[in-house]
């Protein structure tokens, strides 16, 4: 081995190797690559690479993800969770586009193109309104996301049904006969198990 770790296994990573794989970006901007791109530059890139699934305005085609809109729907019966209405950090937009999009052709966009697309997604969500707005490492962390403050820690253990931890009821636990209130067969959306009859 070329190092003095306890088991002397593996080898030291080179700087170029780390640079090639270290693509993650944090909310504080750590990891942002050099580069820049404007809303106006992002629009044709989006049209060419993204709109076929996500729609011209980020509205989503079919069941593909909706990217824009949905502000003030998080308490609705059917919330619309988008970059603008739900995502806490802009860094995630850049990071995820660069790492995994377009779906089926990941890692095909330049860093500048990802800046331009990120700016365009901000524009689709009315978070910036100027088509000449340019996103770069210089102003990246100044962009606040509307829903950032609505994320809270895991408070499940404090929920009433867990917190009590008392011996559960074993007999006569409900008054009167139990009634069926909902049936899956009414909805009838389970795939037919094929000719074997599974799944009804």
């Amino acid at each position: 081995a070329d190092h003095d770790g306890p088991m002397k296994l593996g080898r030291l990573a080179t700087e170029d190797e780390i640079a090639a794989w270290d693509i993650d970006i944090r909310p504080d901007g750590l990891g942002l690559p050099p580069g820049r791109g404007t809303v106006a530059q992002g629009e044709p890139i989006y049209t060419d690479n993204c709109a076929v699934c996500h729609g011209d305005f980020g509205e989503g085609i079919g069941r593909w993800p909706v990217l824009a809109g949905g502000q003030d729907t998080l308490t609705n019966e059917r919330p619309i969770k988008t970059v603008g209405s739900y995502w806490p950090y802009l860094s995630t937009v850049y990071d995820y586009i660069r790492r995994a999009m377009p779906f089926g052709n990941a890692r095909s966009l330049t860093d500048d193109e990802v800046y331009a697309l990120t700016a365009y997604v901000l524009y689709l969500n009315d978070i910036v309104d100027d088509e000449e707005f340019e996103l770069s490492p210089d102003n990246f962390t100044e962009i606040g996301m509307p829903n950032e403050d609505n994320f809270i820690p895991d408070t499940r253990p404090a929920e009433e049904h867990y917190a009590e931890k008392t011996e559960p009821c074993m007999s006569d636990c409900k008054p009167g006969p139990v009634k069926i209130t909902m049936r899956a067969q009414v909805l009838d959306v389970t795939p037919d198990g094929d000719e074997e009859g599974g799944g009804a």
Partner: peptide
Amino acid sequence: WGQREETSKYTDLLANGQARR
């Protein structure tokens, strides 16, 4: 890192509009 799979996904929206992460 606030990655997509721990912000957009795998966060649990509550009735009051807040979400557990």
